[in-house]
């Protein structure tokens, strides 16, 4: 019984996060301006990070935790660098 509940909740959560990633990716492709694309990339990163956490719960492997930590750090750096680029036209002045 608990295995069925666990399996289905993990599957539904993974599907929901997958659809969320598709929506963020669509915003990144469609986004009328550059800042919309950067926002879509940021949402895509955070959704992928959450998907990695759910993979970790589903497989019982805590290695996925480190993957998602690295992913969130990379997403932070990427978005800050892109925002700086949009502001000044130069990342490192």
């Amino acid at each position: 019984m608990s295995a069925i509940i666990f399996f289905w909740s993990v599957t539904v959560a993974q599907t929901a996060l997958g659809i969320a990633m598709v929506l963020a990716f669509a915003r990144m492709i469609r986004g009328p301006r550059a800042q919309d694309r950067v926002l879509g990339l940021d949402a895509l990163y955070s959704n992928a990070m959450l998907l990695m956490l759910v993979f970790g719960i589903g497989t019982g492997n805590s290695l996925y935790f480190e993957i998602s930590l690295i992913m969130s750090a990379l997403g932070f750096v990427a978005t800050v660098a892109l925002a700086k680029f949009l502001m000044r036209g130069e990342v490192i002045e």
């Binding site: 608990s2 509940i5 909740s9 539904v12 929901a16 996060l17 929506l23 963020a24 879509g40 719960i57």
Partner: peptide, 25 residues
């Protein structure tokens, strides 16, 4: 009880993330 709690928090988190990305779209 752990299975129900995990299912509740997983579905809460994933559902809110889906709503947020839908709003972004």
């Amino acid at each position: 009880w752990a299975a129900w709690l995990i299912a509740f928090f997983l579905l809460l988190g994933a559902g809110l993330t889906l709503i947020g990305s839908f709003g972004l779209f």
